[in-house]
Design a protein around this nucleic acid. Structure first.
Lengths: 145, 145
DNA sequence: CATTATTCTATAAAATTGATAGAATATGTA
DNA sequence: TACATATTCTATCAATTTTATAGAATAATG
């Protein structure tokens, strides 16, 4: 399950993607528009900033914006920063591998094998979809209807 | 992330799949062989039983076994029982749909759209892989090496 | 220097997870 | 029947994670 933190973070980041050309956006605006608890959002944005996804400016006229254009940021990046590795098990994580404690033999573990597939499928989707692509594919769908 | 509960449950179920022809297995055996805390495992097995995946017998000569052959039980069934829906968001769950609270329009939500893809990819893997298939595909891989 | 807005640090309530304890119930057998 | 065995049920609990909130510190602007 995606945490609320990641969900909030994605909402904020997509908002910033939609308004990329308009420059800095206030936390207050973001919080209000996307129905996110203000103080919680502050922490989330800060974390995304520290990981290089956002740029901010303090003081009057300040706010947040994407540090790169929306086609250079993937959904997978956002999720990993806020929720950690995509893998359902530490032993199949590429970005944060961790050996199973109970496991005797990794190679002969059926669970590892199938969760590896899940991780790969998830990563393929989230790491190849940029914020822009996610918006665009949504638009395509809307058009058809 | 898969919970320990689900991981333990899968370990137990795969053990029972491997020993399907030998009949009932003691909780104690399962716990020891798979390094699972005994008392915790009891609850897990009971839950799997109540959901129709396992059969048990009390008293002397008792124990647990799969209620169906290993090719009739999918990994997805086990995971759903122990960890709940596969979907990363309630609003894309087929088995346990739940509307997002903050969300204004589901149709125009980029997050929903991409998480839908993740859910579908995950479900495709876990719901089409039976315990038997998981074991078999593992065997195939081992053979190649 | 006053205002604005982000940043930092600390704290805390609520929920979930992982686990244990012990009594109750059912089964087989001597 | 009595005993040993093994699952089942109920209750509880510690630890961790999640979801926040509060307030002071820092930076930028005019």
């Amino acid at each position: 399950m995606l945490s609320k933190k990641a969900k909030y973070g994605l909402k904020a980041v997509f908002y910033l993607a939609r308004n990329y050309d308009d420059g800095l956006v206030l936390i207050a605006t973001l919080a209000e528009e996307e129905n996110i608890p203000r103080k919680f959002l502050e922490l989330i944005l800060l974390e995304l900033k520290k990981n290089g996804l956002l740029h901010s400016k303090m003081g009057k006229g300040g706010g947040y914006e994407l540090s790169k254009p929306p086609n250079k940021i993937t959904v997978g990046q956002v999720v990993r920063i806020l929720d950690g590795p995509l893998a359902p098990l530490g032993c199949v994580s590429k970005t944060a591998y961790k050996k199973c404690e109970e496991c005797v033999s990794e190679r002969s573990c059926e669970i590892r094998r199938i969760m590896q597939q899940v991780r790969d499928a998830t990563a393929k989707i989230l790491d190849t979809t940029s914020l822009e692509e996610a918006r665009h594919s949504l638009f395509e769908i809307e058009k058809i209807k």
